[in-house]
Design a protein around this nucleic acid. Sequence first.
DNA 1: TAATTAATTTAGACAAATCTAAAAATATGT
DNA 2: ACATATTTTTAGATTTGTCTAAATTAATTA
Lengths: 226, 226
Amino acid sequence: MQNKSVSQTEENYLKVIYKLDEKAEGKISTSSISEMMGIAPASVTDMLGKLSDKKLISYKKYQGVSLTPSGRKTAVMVIRKHRLWEHFLVEKLGLSWDEVHEIAEQLEHIRSEKLFDKLDAYLKFPKFDPHGDPIPDSNGNFTNTSAIPMSSCNLNGKYLITGVADHSAEFLRYLTRTGMILGCQFTVKEKQEYDNSFLILKQGTKNELAVSNEIAKKLLVTKARD
Amino acid sequence: MQNKSVSQTEENYLKVIYKLDEKAEGKISTSSISEMMGIAPASVTDMLGKLSDKKLISYKKYQGVSLTPSGRKTAVMVIRKHRLWEHFLVEKLGLSWDEVHEIAEQLEHIRSEKLFDKLDAYLKFPKFDPHGDPIPDSNGNFTNTSAIPMSSCNLNGKYLITGVADHSAEFLRYLTRTGMILGCQFTVKEKQEYDNSFLILKQGTKNELAVSNEIAKKLLVTKARD
DNA sequence: TAATTAATTTAGACAAATCTAAAAATATGT
DNA sequence: ACATATTTTTAGATTTGTCTAAATTAATTA
């Protein structure tokens, strides 16, 4: 009953299933996986059979899939590697947060326990990646955060930007341009009724900044003490 | 006339062809590639056809192969990536020189110009990897060295260990155990006629060390000023 | 140089991961 | 609840990189 080896492709499927599970939008369907991966539904069905044979997912035809403990662990370890590399690329090599995802997609499949133990230590066991996503530790445990979407901030509340819900390069570059980067503190000055947009005042600045509801939904914040 | 994309597998073939070319043992044959890669000769023939179609090698049936400029460039860039990563793994992460090869074999296929520019700068543009092999710069130029095998050292000559001709983990661990690591300086005290072994005195030590011809052939040294 | 041996290539097959088109199962709407 | 629409699966094909066995070419040796 050995750990059968898991291919890169299989790792990618598990990662996507994990992410769909995390979103908790009910059943994980063949089509949702197909759509997220840009792969034909028939190909997904095929792979689900293989992952099921390897006991990485449980799968009944037409009924959607779920991760087994072993499949979940594999997925979490891929995510751990991805986020550790992203941290490295930004903090050590000085790449920007909008250009590390693609590179980390490649690096996340490197196989070497020891490498990742050493990398983790070298980076001082970071808890979060450059987008504010938690980095699971070597046992697969995540740090819990109480981040909420900016769209649910209270008037006059003081918050800290701690994450993003949209990882696209375009969105990240928009945030960089407007100075809404991780760690930035702000106070909600106004909440517009008609379009749910905000006027915020960033700490250390003078001019208020308008933030649309679209943007606010994609920004994750935590309450700062006033 | 675009750069067609080169698969990981193709990169590995080009790297092996490059290394066989470097050894300059005459014609690069199907069987030498087969042997070095542990892949059946028939499979190699097949791949040579593909590489030839892509103009990465020139290949006439039964006549052996040689790299085209484009194939050589690809090979050199793979070697550059491999050696940069090895340097990183040893100097930054603290892995030992006998355990980095396998990991670098995976890392050498990561695609991102920018990553390697940044990594190179981060490592301060190293000229040599942990085994003393030269790291080509971003234009593919190698630093020239005048290393010779230790087996051709002169009696009473003073030398510096600067490289290895055998990269196996076993050999590297043997060197580590006996303290014959890169940068170590020594003087040749005796040269045995009957077995071509040496007695050397390492700088800063008191006891002479016996080095068999087998070992001496696999150690690369440069003359030190006396 | 002719015969034998060795190296190389060809032919045909296979596994992994994908595709398209068609069939089957499930879900939806009046 | 039945007809229709959607989702999922099956079937069969394709590409890449590999294999073994057989055929062909080149090299060696008697």
